[in-house]
């Protein structure tokens, strides 16, 4: 448990500047300074514990999103809202459609129908690569560290609006060198914060699984996102790194970023999420604060089967 998790929601807090314990200052996107994580968490107290519940300040809204693969309806989500400034977990048994929904929300996959709105922009027809410019960045279940690039190159890649990424400017280094220096400084500061500075010039392919997850997360932050989408951030991470990763995820939220993550690991969900959305068979079957989920009958049924605690009765089974 980090200190933050023991705070009672709703108690007036010192404010965002006191909530940033990081030793290295990393400049935040303008939009983030206005987000008060504690207030956003407190606002969730009045949200009803039901699927598709309306949030007071949603950053991401999806309506009637349907995705079919042939005859299989992988996702059929009536209404999903993600509250700005909090950590939301998306959980569900294997094959529930979590990653599919995740891909739909980040536009890495197109739904058969439905609309998605991110931070006031309709993103239905926006190509995946433009989503990052709106302030949403995602990571992948199978970590995509760019193996044959060094850690620092990986980091610098994440910065948006780079002048030197234009072909005609690339042969004129003086047109982008100054910006490149700023980007490198920002990348180094982030590496420092993720305690990866010593691996700065190593190829990313030489990192361990957990370090790659850290790198991917740090690289995502180079985008200066307002919303971070993490697809199974704990998959394949050795337990020694788990706490550090958890700390970084809560750190994002304390800086005002919205976090949505897909996870199997219930301990992680209980420990860091402010709100949980449960999926089963492509549908949203429950929502609520993490403590409420364990007692939710629909969730228990989805994970364990609806007859798990009754004696097997042949007549009803048939």
């Amino acid at each position: 448990m980090t200190a933050d998790d023991m705070d009672v929601p709703g108690v007036p807090d010192a404010g965002p500047e006191a909530a940033d314990p990081e030793p290295v200052a990393v400049p935040l996107a303008e939009a983030l300074r206005e987000v008060d994580h504690e207030a956003a968490r407190a606002a969730l107290a009045d949200v009803p514990w039901e699927p598709g519940a309306k949030k007071p300040d949603p950053i991401l809204v999806a309506d009637h999103v349907v995705r079919r693969f042939g005859g299989l309806t992988a996702v059929d989500a009536d209404h999903v809202e993600v509250q700005r400034g909090v950590i939301t977990a998306l959980i569900g048994p294997n094959g529930a459609g979590k990653t599919t929904l995740f891909n739909l929300l980040t536009n890495f996959d197109k739904p058969d129908s439905g609309t998605r709105v991110f931070d006031g922009h309709n993103i239905d027809d926006v190509p995946a690569h433009k989503i990052a410019n709106y302030g949403m960045v995602r990571t992948f279940q199978l970590t995509k560290a760019l193996s044959k690039m060094t850690v620092i190159e990986n980091m610098k890649l994440g910065a948006t609006g780079q002048r030197g990424e234009k072909l005609w400017r690339s042969i004129l280094p003086f047109t982008w060198k100054a910006q490149e220096r700023d980007i490198e400084a920002r990348a180094d500061a982030l590496l420092e914060r993720f305690k990866m500075s010593h691996m700065r010039d190593e190829f990313a392919g030489t990192l361990s699984g957990g370090q790659r997850k850290l790198l991917e997360m740090a690289r995502a932050l180079m985008v200066e996102p307002t919303m971070v989408m993490l697809d199974e951030p704990m998959a394949g991470v050795n337990p020694a790194l788990t706490q550090s990763l958890l700390g970084h995820v809560t750190g994002l939220s304390e800086q005002g970023m919205t976090v949505l993550f897909v996870e199997h690991d219930m301990d992680m969900v209980q420990e860091i999420s402010d709100w949980v959305i449960v999926m089963a068979e492509g549908r949203i079957i429950a929502e609520g604060p993490p403590a409420s989920i364990g007692e939710n009958q629909a969730v228990v049924d989805a994970y364990l089967g609806s007859h798990h605690d009754s004696a097997l009765d042949l007549d009803t089974e048939l």
């Binding site: 980040t106 690569h129 989503i131 890649l157 948006t160 995502a220 985008v223």
Partner: peptide, 13 residues
């Protein structure tokens, strides 16, 4: 070359 989707997720066309 290393991973197209990763580049895309970081805003590269």
């Amino acid at each position: 070359r290393e991973d197209e989707d990763a580049a895309r997720s970081l805003g590269k066309n």
